[in-house]
C-alpha cells in the first residue's frame, strides 16, 4: 500500500512535482465540496425519511377510513356496485403532474395531484339508494389517493437520493482514501528522488572538486618540481656565470627611480 507501490507513474522531475502539488490541492478542494454536498443530501435524506414515516402512518389511517367508507357503501346499496363504477368511469378525475426540484444538483421528481373539475362520471351511481355514500366514499378514496401520491413522490425522492448519496460518498471516500494518499505518496516519492539526486549531485561535485584539487596539487607539485629543477639549473648556470662575470651593479644599468 504505502511506499513505492502506490504512486503514479511519473518521472520524478520538478515539473511533475508542481503538477502533483496542484493535483493534490484540487483533490482536497473537491473532497471538501463533495463532503459538503453529501452532508446536504444526507440532511435532506433524513428529512424525507421522516416525512415518509409520517406519510405512511397517515396512509394507514386514511386507507382504513376509506375501506370503512366502502363498507358503508356496501351496507347502504346492499350489493356490489364495483362493476358499475368501473364501467361508468370514463376519464380520470384525479390527475397528477410532475415537477422537478433541485437539491444540491440532484433533480428530484415531485408529484403534485389535482382534480379535474366538472368530471363527474358516476355521479348518478346509487341514485335509487346509497348515492350519498358512494359520493362520500369517492371523496374519501380521493383523499387516500392523494396521500398515496404524496408517499410516491417521497419514495421516489428517497430512492434517487439514496443512489446519489451512495455515489457521492463513494467519490468522497475515493478521493479521501485513494487519490489524496496516492498523490501525497507521489509527491513524497518525487521529493525523495529529487533529494537523492541532489545528494548525488553534491557528492559528485565534491568528488569532482577533490579530483580537481588533487590534480591541482599534482600540477602544482610538478610545477614546483619543474621550477625547482629549473631554478637549480639556473643557479648552476648563474653560479657559473657569476663566476665568470659579476655584473657591475652600479655600472651601466640605470637605477630605477625610487618614488615614495
Amino acid at each position: 500500500m504505502s511506499g513505492a507501490g502506490n504512486r503514479e507513474a511519473v518521472f520524478p522531475t520538478r515539473q511533475s512535482l508542481g503538477l502533483m502539488k496542484s493535483k493534490l490541492k484540487g483533490a482536497q478542494t473537491g473532497h471538501d465540496l463533495l463532503k459538503r454536498k453529501s452532508e446536504a443530501l444526507t440532511k435532506r435524506f433524513r428529512e424525507i425519511t421522516r416525512r415518509i414515516d409520517e406519510a405512511k402512518r397517515k396512509m394507514g389511517r386514511v386507507m382504513q377510513i376509506a375501506a370503512f367508507s366502502l363498507a358503508e357503501v356496501t351496507y347502504a346499496v346492499g350489493g356490489d356496485i364495483g362493476y358499475q363504477v368501473q364501467e361508468s368511469a370514463k376519464s380520470a378525475r384525479f390527475r397528477i403532474r410532475t415537477k422537478q426540484e433541485n437539491v444540491s444538483g440532484v433533480f428530484l421528481p415531485a408529484f403534485e395531484s389535482f382534480t379535474t373539475e366538472g368530471n363527474n362520471d358516476f355521479g348518478l351511481t346509487g341514485l335509487g339508494k346509497g348515492g350519498q355514500q358512494v359520493q362520500r366514499c369517492r371523496e374519501t378514496y380521493a383523499r387516500a389517493v392523494e396521500t398515496l401520491v404524496e408517499l410516491a413522490s417521497l419514495q421516489t425522492a428517497f430512492v434517487i437520493l439514496d443512489e446519489v448519496i451512495k455515489v457521492v460518498n463513494r467519490r468522497v471516500n475515493a478521493i479521501e482514501h485513494v487519490i489524496i494518499p496516492r498523490t501525497e505518496n507521489t509527491i513524497k516519492y518525487i521529493n525523495s528522488e529529487l533529494d537523492e539526486l541532489d545528494r548525488e549531485e553534491f557528492f559528485r561535485l565534491k568528488k569532482v572538486q577533490n579530483k580537481k584539487q588533487r590534480d591541482n596539487a599534482q600540477q602544482d607539485a610538478e610545477m614546483l618540481a619543474k621550477r625547482e629543477a629549473a631554478a637549480e639549473q639556473e643557479k648552476q648556470e648563474s653560479d657559473k656565470e657569476n663566476a665568470e662575470s659579476t655584473p657591475d651593479i652600479l655600472g651601466e644599468q640605470e637605477d630605477e627611480d625610487v618614488i615614495f
Binding site: I65, F68, S69, E72, A76, G130, Q132, R136, E139, T140
Partner: peptide, 18 residues
C-alpha cells in the same frame, strides 16, 4: 352538512336518513 348518511367514517353517531 351534506346529506348526512353515516358521515363517511369520520364520526357522527346520529342516524342518517338512509
Amino acid at each position: 352538512t351534506g346529506a348526512g348518511n353515516m358521515s363517511g367514517g369520520a364520526g357522527g353517531e346520529g342516524k342518517s336518513l338512509e
